[in-house]
């Protein structure tokens, strides 16, 4: 087994990252629009504060939202796109190529998630205080765990035979619903809504961003083990044929 053989997922990931970076609209929509919303809300409510704890409590929902968008509209949506374009049918139908593709795709969007988190941190820290490397690294770690958390429902949705347009609509509905339920759960809620909130990944992501990975250790382990299991499921059941085709 030579170096080229084992480095194929990394080489593929590099190409996928290059592809993502050449889509500036995606960067704008996923990162810049939450930043703009953050500033609008901040200016509307109170003067800016430079304290780290205030910063996180003000931005945790935004980080949770951005990480969900990377998982849904990056990781998962591009899998759907590659399937519907016929790319998977032509090149990714053996067990080996599925493993290369899935590792490459996941690695690429892991890097993209770190990039988006970094851009969001820098843009929101410009006016609220000094750049703090320690704070940045803590946020980065929490953000990545949130990305892993959202990757589970996102990858599961790629196993549903949906065409490109329907997948886009479903992902948008899911993203908005998670955010709306998360914001509702911030105030006093009925027991029924509390139960719904418990199953809302956005609520958990917000909790991870606020409390930290260690404090949410059980969640982290559930996410990690679920992802390993899901990877095996994906290798077996990844949809190859475009949904629009007859079969």
């Amino acid at each position: 087994m030579d170096f080229y053989f084992v480095s194929r997922p990394a080489l593929l990931a590099a190409l996928f990252i290059k592809e993502q970076l050449r889509e500036p609209v995606a960067l704008f929509w996923t990162v810049v629009s939450p930043v703009v919303t953050y500033y609008l809300l901040t200016y509307a409510r109170a003067p800016l504060s430079s304290e780290a704890v205030d910063y996180l409590s003000k931005t945790s929902w935004f980080y949770a939202f951005v990480s969900s968008n990377v998982a849904l509209f990056g990781l998962a949506f591009y899998i759907v796109g590659r399937r519907e374009s016929g790319f998977l049918r032509s090149f990714v139908y053996t067990d080996r190529t599925k493993v290369v593709f899935l590792i490459g795709q996941f690695s690429a969007y892991s890097v993209v998630s770190i990039l988006y988190c970094s851009v969001f941190y820098m843009l929101t820290r410009i006016f609220s205080g000094e750049f703090d490397v320690a704070e940045y690294l803590v946020i980065l770690g929490r953000f990545y765990v949130c990305f892993l958390l959202f990757s589970i429902p996102a990858l599961l949705l790629t196993l549903v035979p949906l065409g490109f347009q329907n997948a886009s609509t479903l992902f948008s509905i899911l993203s908005l619903t998670m955010l709306a339920l998360g914001i509702i759960s911030m105030g006093p809620v009925s027991p029924a809504l509390a139960i719904v909130g418990f199953f809302n990944p956005m609520w958990w992501a917000n909790k991870i961003m606020l409390d930290g990975v260690v404090e949410c250790g059980l969640v982290f382990w559930v996410v990690a083990i679920s992802l390993v299991f899901l990877f095996l499921v994906m290798c077996r059941y990844l949809l190859i044929d475009p949904v629009w085709s007859r079969y």
């Binding site: 190409l15 290059k18 592809e19 050449r22 889509e23 374009s85 016929g86 790319f87 049918r89 032509s90």
Partner: peptide, 11 residues
């Protein structure tokens, strides 16, 4: 090589 294949336009 399948019948229909589209390529990422940015590449």
């Amino acid at each position: 090589l399948s019948q229909i294949i589209s390529t990422p336009p940015v590449f």
